[in-house]
Design a binder for these strands. Sequence first.
DNA 1: TTTGTTGTTCGTAAAATTACGAACTTATTT
DNA 2: AAATAAGTTCGTAATTTTACGAACAACAAA
Lengths: 112, 112
Amino acid sequence: MAYTLSNNYEEEELVLSRFAKAMGHPARIAILKYLASLDACCFGDIHKELPIAKATVSQHLAELKDAGLIQGTIDPPKVNYCIDKENWAKAKVLFGALFDKVAAEDVDPKCC
Amino acid sequence: MAYTLSNNYEEEELVLSRFAKAMGHPARIAILKYLASLDACCFGDIHKELPIAKATVSQHLAELKDAGLIQGTIDPPKVNYCIDKENWAKAKVLFGALFDKVAAEDVDPKCC
DNA sequence: TTTGTTGTTCGTAAAATTACGAACTTATTT
DNA sequence: AAATAAGTTCGTAATTTTACGAACAACAAA
């Protein structure tokens, strides 16, 4: 990415947007939901859950891994993926803090 | 977007990924953080907070609006933006439910 | 050693994203 | 009526994303 002045964004904004971006595709949400309900599972099982080619699944997994949301370990001939619990906890806190910034009680559909 | 078989994703996955995608840029996180701390504010104030051209700010605001995370109302010659509290609450629930799917207690950095 | 299984990587094409300045719109003010 | 102010929209360029099939690598089994 090439932000003209990415220095002008706070570290927290960069981290949070990185997590959000990784979650910004239905296939990747499906993968995360699946892995979150399991302890770990291999590429093939994930692929079976999705309506896309394996090369594309691999690409999505790589993006989730690069963002830090999942981990992958080789267990020949398979590769096991699982949630990266440390970063998962970080993401949970960051999203939670943002969502909690808005007072929930006065949910007026047309505030402006 | 052109997903070969977007029917194969659950509605919830589509909605959640849509919110996440909208949050997948530091400028948009900065905007949301700013608006979440205020009741509402105009375009100009938002623009002042960001290191990008006004045309680009307008574009980012449009994306947040399309995703349903914010609302904008014209108050000539200004435009006031604010968090869409109804959808904000929905997003909070959806993200929360996903993050809570993973047991927090056993945060083992290398689970697989 | 050949075959099969499992996933990744490569090459590529189409579409989406991000960014900017310039032009335009809408309404107020002079 | 002209000028100003506030934002949006337009046109465009560079980059990134998404997707696929084909080729490849790593290992196990026949």
